[in-house]
């Protein structure tokens, strides 16, 4: 199944989803597509004006362009997702989209999809970390492949 991860550029979440046999929908995939298909060689996020305009599907013109650009990148992935894992209170070193308003909107868009969602809190110690991996494993194994 296609599993959206939030933060969408978290390598840890990407790895966990992939290990348990699912397809992670992540920033890495979107960026890779931009590099491979559009021959834009300025990673990470060389968006085009058309991309930002496409973001109007998710937020009106009064919303700052940076938010619309982010939503244009990740909105379609959320629409495509069969499930999602959301990490709450993650530090920026774990992965982030840079803009808190975009974070809030992404979480809202995921919730509106009515797909299976696993909410986890960023682990504060080793025990929490183990519990996080166990809960992610159970969630992912419970999804049909």
């Amino acid at each position: 199944m296609k599993v959206f991860i939030d933060p969408p550029n978290s390598l840890v979440l990407f790895d966990i989803v992939e290990r348990f046999g699912h397809e992670p929908l992540s920033a890495m995939a979107a960026i890779q597509e931009k590099i491979d298909n559009l021959e834009i060689d300025m990673p990470p996020m060389n968006m085009t004006l058309d991309d930002v305009v496409r973001g109007l599907k998710y937020a009106g013109v009064e919303v700052p362009s940076g938010i619309r650009g982010r939503l244009a990148m990740w909105g379609p992935m959320i629409e495509e997702a069969d499930a999602a894992i959301i990490m709450d209170d993650a530090p920026y070193s774990f992965g982030c989209v840079g803009c808190e308003r975009s974070n809030e909107m992404l979480k809202y868009l995921i919730k509106k999809r009515n797909i299976p969602i696993l909410h986890v809190v960023y682990p504060s110690d080793e025990e929490d970390a183990k519990n996080f991996v166990i809960s992610a494993k159970e969630f992912l194994e419970g999804l049909s492949k």
């Binding site: 300025m42 990470p44 996020m45 060389n46 968006m47 085009t48 004006l49 991309d51 930002v52 700052p64 362009s65 940076g66 938010i67 619309r68 650009g69 982010r70 990148m73 840079g98 803009c99």
Partner: peptide, 12 residues
């Protein structure tokens, strides 16, 4: 800066 890449203006 914040948002320049996602707004497609960094290159400009």
């Amino acid at each position: 800066s914040c948002g320049t890449e996602y707004s497609s203006v960094q290159h400009e």
